[in-house]
Design a protein around this nucleic acid. Structure first.
Length: 658
DNA sequence: AGGATCTGTCTTTTT
DNA sequence: GACAGATCCT
């Protein structure tokens, strides 16, 4: 009995393919990860050393799942158990792979092994600095806007120099070029990379340095890339380089689930794979194992309206099933009340809360939904509270980073006066400018004692494991004392800080130095959505709330898709009245992703009135609802729920109409 | 230096 | 209607 016996013929042909380029077009719920993990196992059984295998995903969550499943599969195979000990496949996200290579090749980058990885806030701050340095007004030229512009160009593999050389005399591009150049100077000065740099610099390094390129091409002979439809130019190029001359490159994806066009992803990369590699084998996975017939019929109807796609039609063996409910409500509070009540009913019937997901287009929608769930005492968890974004966690990490990378001004700025040391704006400016000599003696002393703390931490890092170092930092920095004094939130903050210690212990077995460096880079790359916090916080049995974007790759028996209103979903961007067909198709793909998350039942809800920003907007139902067929939908007759609720509504209605 | 108060902006989606 | 940033006040 082979491990391949559990696969269907299409999956099996993909898993058995070992040499040359392979394109797997995998519909939603078609067993993509299963196929990929079995392919990896098959490669290992066919004699490829595990450490020669690379798998790249987009999210940490996906990487973790892939690694876990490969490990689990390997464990069941007695024949490879010994071989596996020698090494494991390298599973990483594009960003963490970049960070890994840039750290290993620090001699070429010149930014050391402890370079900072700037998060959004840091990037904005540095850009603002650059804007001011260019004698521009940061209010007129918002850092955010410039960041988007630069980010997009970096994704197209452009640098400050190549961009400047390319732009003509247009006003805004010239501004961008100027700010970008200064921003780049600051990055080098701080020994930092932003998110896009991790891929950009890695790709450039590998294309410019044949020696380094050869090293990684020899190391990874078999490449896998998940969610290939979401690659941008830089990632596409990096994939090609890593594929080397052997072309043992396997890409998996689904053009219908491409939802990141707005940040430079181009699903055409997937459509041209066969041109890039004319000898490519193509496998189509169309059998869906997740959803019922009704849900799949709806999904197929939704996506077939798109013009730019590779045609494919999912099918399932799960005939019939529950119809999709369309729920009309007065406003977002009533919508939330309906959902909360339905959740309560499901739970009463024995459904586990974690089997229910509530999806929305934009984050702000979560608030009303949370209030609704809270009112009915339904356990819930919002994806998006980032453990590493908590103040206290940021502060602890900032101390460690500042200790290891004295050029990390972002971190120094963050912690110089936390806890309060009587060092304010003026002092900070002088410290950052290197002008400590002109400080008053008393202040000078305070700065010196701050520096002593950093030196202590740096020294501790030479011998302590990550978890010990974090523990030491919490105490030595004075943060612990500060938390203990704060009666209100201090306890929770301290708890979070110590959760970081627990998390750090996962890195204790790595070689000294490498452990803390990996922890810091993982922390920087941990996204809102896949909070590494799930490692530390218990996986609770709770209803999941998340954006549709965040739901990609997940599945739930019961799914509520909320805010089905025109201009919210499909969302109308800031493009104004111009209808952009590409964006519209992406919104449709997003809706397709949302519907295909469900196994058993889907509710689509919309509100006639929605408060956005304090002001009430009147909405019409989403145009997407018109594309659904009577055959598989039903309209919920009553909304709101029990009498108590209805009474409340009447009251509200009156107030609203006054 | 640091807190208190006021103002304007924000909400599309994320590594 | 929150939250950051600016400004004012102690």
């Amino acid at each position: 009995m082979s491990h391949l016996d559990s696969l269907n013929p299409a999956q099996r042909s993909a898993a058995e393919h070992t040499t040359g380029p392979l394109l797997i077009i995998a519909g939603a719920g078609a067993g993509k990860t299963k196929t990929l993990t079995h392919r990896i196992l098959n490669l290992i059984k066919s004699g490829i050393a595990p450490e020669h295998i690379l798998a790249i995903t987009f999210t940490n969550k996906a990487a973790r799942e892939m690694a876990d499943r490969v490990r689990a599969l390997l464990a069941t195979e007695a024949s490879v158990r010994h071989g596996a000990k020698a090494g494991e496949p390298f599973v990483a996200t594009f960003h963490s792979l970049g960070a890994y290579i840039l750290r290993a090749e620090h001699e070429a980058t010149g930014r050391g092994t402890h370079f900072s990885i700037l998060d959004d806030d840091d990037t904005n701050r540095l850009l603002k600095q650059a804007i001011i340095a260019q004698q521009l007004d940061p209010k007129q030229f918002e850092p955010r806007r410039l960041k988007n512009a630069i980010s997009r160009e970096k994704g197209e593999l452009l640098t400050a120099e190549t961009y400047a050389a390319r732009v003509g005399n247009e006003y805004f591009p010239r501004i961008v070029a100027g700010v970008w150049k200064e921003y780049e100077r600051l990055l080098v000065q701080e020994k930092a990379f932003d998110f896009d740099d991790l891929i950009l610099h890695t790709t450039l390094l590998l294309s410019e340095r044949p020696d380094i390129r050869a090293k990684y091409q020899a190391r990874w002979t078999h490449i896998h890339i998940d969610e290939y439809q979401d690659t941008n130019v830089a990632q596409y190029k990096l994939s090609k380089i890593l594929g080397g001359d052997q072309h043992n490159i396997c890409v998996v994806g689904d053009t219908d689930q491409s939802i990141y066009g707005w940040r430079g992803a181009d699903f055409r990369n997937m459509m041209i794979f066969e041109e890039d590699y004319p000898d490519a084998t193509v496998v189509l996975l169309e059998e869906n194992y997740r959803s019922t017939e009704h849900i799949l019929a709806a999904a197929n109807d939704i996506i077939k309206k798109n013009k730019v796609r590779k045609d494919k039609t999912l099918f399932t063996n799960k005939k019939g099933g529950e119809k999709i409910s369309i729920v009309s409500t007065l406003d977002e509070r009533e919508e939330a009340r309906f959902i909360a009540k339905t959740c309560r009913d499901l739970i009463t019937q024995g459904v586990s809360p974690k089997d229910i997901a509530i999806l929305y287009r934009a984050n702000f929608q979560s608030r009303a939904l949370e209030e609704g769930l809270l009112a009915r005492d339904i356990p819930y968890q919002v994806l998006g509270v980032k453990f590493f974004n908590r103040m206290e966690v940021k502060h602890v990490l900032a101390y460690i980073r500042a200790a290891l990378n004295p050029d990390a001004t972002a971190d120094i700025a963050r912690i110089l006066n936390v806890p309060t040391r009587g060092l304010g704006k003026t002092t900070l400016a002088k410290v950052l400018a290197g002008d400590e000599a002109s400080l008053p003696p008393a202040t000078k002393e305070k700065v010196a004692s701050f520096r002593t703390i950093l030196a202590d931490i740096a020294r501790a890092a030479e011998t302590y494991t990550p978890s010990l170092l974090i523990r030491y930092t919490i105490k030595q920095s004075g943060l612990e004392e500060m938390f203990l004094k704060d009666r209100e939130e201090g306890e929770e903050r301290l708890e979070n800080a110590y959760e970081l210690v627990a998390l750090g212990s996962k890195y204790d077995t790595l070689p000294l130095g490498e452990g803390i460096a990996t922890l810091l880079s993982d922390a920087a790359l941990a996204s809102d959505q896949d909070s590494l916090g799930t490692h530390t916080k218990k996986q609770v049995d709770a209803v999941r709330l998340m954006t549709v974007h965040a739901s990609k790759g997940l599945e739930f028996p019961y799914v509520f898709i909320t805010g089905m209103e025109q201009d919210l979903f499909p969302h109308r961007g800031f493009d104004g009245p111009v209808r952009n067909p590409e964006r519209e198709e992406e919104e449709r793909r997003l809706f397709y992703v949302a519907v295909t998350r469900a196994e058993k039942k889907v509710w689509l809800s919309y509100a006639h009135m929605r408060t956005v920003f304090g002001s009430k907007n009147v909405n019409t139902p989403s145009e997407f609802l018109m594309d659904l067929d009577e055959a598989y939908i039903e309209t919920a007759e009553e909304i709101g729920g029990d009498e108590e609720d209805t009474e409340q509504h009447e009251g509200e209605r009156m107030i609203e109409y006054l």
